[in-house]
Simulated assay, not measured.
Amino acid sequence: MLNDSDAVLTRMIELLRLGAFDDWAIALEKIKMDFDRDPKYKSSQLLSMYGGMGSLNDVVLYKNGQPLVAESNEFDALRVQLYEICKTLA
């Protein structure tokens, strides 16, 4: 399960950087760094990013003013996968 979260977070961070969401990328990198040390706490932190205005749920990736449709769809699928992993661990 932890390997899954690492792979999902790694790809989400890559996509966030591609879409110039550096603040979100940094936030996920901080959680990813020591996720395996305290997965329950880190899962709770991640789950708190999933609600309200400006949350992780609102991210749509753009580059040069153009929506990145395939990348946004991939990000959405990863976001759902990460949510399910975190619900299991929290």
Score class of each variant (00 low, 15 high):
residue 24 W to N: 01
residue 36 D to A: 13
residue 54 G to L: 00
residue 43 S to G: 09
residue 30 K to N: 13
residue 41 Y to T: 13
residue 39 P to D: 05
residue 55 S to N: 07
residue 56 L to T: 04
residue 17 R to N: 14
residue 35 F to W: 08
residue 53 M to N: 07
residue 44 S to T: 00
residue 15 L to M: 02
residue 37 R to S: 08
residue 28 L to S: 04
residue 30 K to W: 12
residue 25 A to W: 06
residue 35 F to A: 05
residue 31 I to L: 02
residue 27 A to L: 15
residue 37 R to M: 12
residue 42 K to L: 12
residue 41 Y to N: 08
residue 31 I to S: 01
residue 54 G to M: 02
residue 50 Y to R: 10
residue 56 L to C: 05
residue 35 F to C: 11
residue 40 K to H: 08
residue 28 L to W: 00
residue 33 M to C: 07
residue 45 Q to I: 05
residue 43 S to V: 04
residue 41 Y to K: 14
residue 19 G to Y: 15
residue 55 S to C: 03
residue 49 M to K: 01
residue 25 A to H: 03
residue 48 S to L: 11
residue 46 L to F: 07
residue 47 L to S: 12
residue 41 Y to E: 11
residue 39 P to C: 05
residue 35 F to H: 09
residue 54 G to K: 02
residue 49 M to F: 15
residue 33 M to T: 13
residue 24 W to A: 15
residue 36 D to S: 09
residue 34 D to V: 09
residue 46 L to C: 07
residue 54 G to Y: 09
residue 27 A to D: 03
residue 29 E to Y: 00
residue 14 E to L: 03
residue 41 Y to D: 11
residue 37 R to Q: 11
residue 24 W to E: 04
residue 43 S to A: 00
residue 37 R to A: 10
residue 25 A to S: 01
residue 54 G to D: 10
residue 49 M to V: 03
residue 34 D to E: 13
residue 43 S to D: 00
residue 28 L to I: 14
residue 46 L to A: 11
residue 23 D to Y: 06
residue 15 L to E: 12
residue 17 R to M: 03
residue 49 M to S: 05
residue 44 S to G: 08
residue 54 G to H: 07
residue 22 D to F: 15
residue 51 G to V: 05
residue 35 F to Q: 06
residue 25 A to N: 02
residue 50 Y to E: 05
residue 29 E to W: 02
residue 37 R to D: 12
residue 22 D to S: 12
residue 19 G to V: 12
residue 38 D to K: 06
residue 45 Q to M: 11
residue 34 D to I: 05
residue 47 L to E: 04
residue 49 M to N: 05
residue 20 A to F: 06
residue 39 P to F: 14
residue 20 A to W: 08
residue 42 K to H: 05
residue 40 K to P: 12
residue 17 R to L: 09
residue 55 S to W: 11
